[in-house]
Amino acid sequence: MSASHQRVEVGGAAPYRIDIAPGLLDDGARLAAHLRGRHALVVSDSQVAPLYAQRVRAALAAVRPDARLALHVFDAGEASKTLANFSGVIDALAALGATRDACIYALGGGVVGDLAGFAAACWMRGIDCVQLPTTLLAMVDSSVGGKTAVDIAQGKNLVGAFHPPRAVIADTASLRTLPPRELRAGFAEVIKYGAIVDAPFLDWLEAHADGLLAGDDALLAEAIARSCRHKAAITERDPFEHGERALLNFGHTFGHAIETEQGYGGLNHGEAVAVGMVLAARLSTALGLADAADGARLRGLLRRFELPTGLPAGLDPAALVARMRLDKKAQGSGLRFVLWDGAGKARVVADVDEAAVRAVLQDR
């Protein structure tokens, strides 16, 4: 394999492979290898489908001319990750006559992957799903690990299921059509892996920031593979988030509260996580867990990747805390956060004093 082609093997009860390279969406043999039956539904959104859906269908059809292939498209954006659009995918599977050996190909970013994966988990109590992530955020986070969900008015990802994919096929060439803001947002999740378990990765990202932002295929493949290896190792040890997997939520309790309070119309997910990580680092310092210098360095690296690091104006700290109480990562006994003892050393802290959280939110 070339430097721009990376492979990650995910173990556990339902093992699968992650392939990362440019041009994979046109690799019909690789795509069709995971279609056990005759029915395939490509699920995508209104931004990605015009760019890639027909190419994926053509690549599949060339290898599996006997297959029945259908396409289901919904409006792009986090606001579309709803039970109504979940029902739309279910209706598309019914119209296709999808049997238990059918496969969903989730072509798009995290919203498509989450929604299509959830539908795959539910149709006939579970059919195959191949994740075809087209955003950096999805390649390093949502496509890996099998967490699928939709949002409701009360919060993100409150309705969902654990459903590991049959494969993840990440075509890095698709990142060339990604809006610059979306590419930058993905680097928040990449940086997160350095923050929670791999401090040297932060040095590597600092050294290669220019090339990564410019879209260098080999650098992107390396960053994606390193991120996926960390996520795969953690999710393999803790598939249902009973312990260690919670570390992957560093910055997410704050970030999800920001997204929900803004009605999914302000910061996007990666941007909200970037701000959330800065707030988590600040809370760690306030609680005496980490040195302020670690937080300053993290903030500087996020800025290097042109990500926001401050709480957006107009958000009420009390309202954000109320959102956090409903977050699925909260416990009945009180607020729970992933904090850190410094770079590469994250930990879960339960029963965090709400006054300390409000103080961090008010310190702008």
Rank of each mutant, 00 (worst) to 15 (best):
T134A: 04
R125C: 07
V73N: 04
V89M: 04
A61S: 14
G276M: 03
A319H: 09
I224F: 05
M124R: 14
G266I: 05
P165I: 10
L136M: 13
L326I: 15
A120W: 02
A121E: 10
V321Q: 09
H5P: 09
L202W: 03
L132K: 08
M1F: 09
R176N: 12
G342C: 04
A290C: 11
T260R: 14
A106Q: 06
S87V: 07
D91G: 10
I191C: 10
I127L: 11
G265I: 03
S333E: 15
F187Q: 03
T134Q: 00
L311K: 03
T253E: 09
D101W: 08
G215E: 02
M139G: 03
L132T: 03
T309G: 07
A313Q: 11
L96C: 04
F240V: 15
I104E: 09
L301P: 02
G186A: 08
P312F: 09
G344T: 05
P317C: 13
G97E: 08
A76K: 07
A355R: 14
Y105I: 06
L35E: 00
R303W: 04
R166A: 12
A185D: 01
G155I: 11
F86W: 13
T99R: 15
L287M: 13
P50F: 10
G160P: 01
L69N: 00
N157W: 04
H256I: 06
A359I: 02
R229F: 00
D341S: 11
A33T: 13
T177V: 04
R100P: 01
R38C: 10
I224N: 02
G77K: 12
M124A: 14
A62E: 12
A153V: 11
H5S: 12
A49P: 02
L302C: 08
A257G: 00
A318N: 11
L335W: 06
P317D: 00
F240L: 14
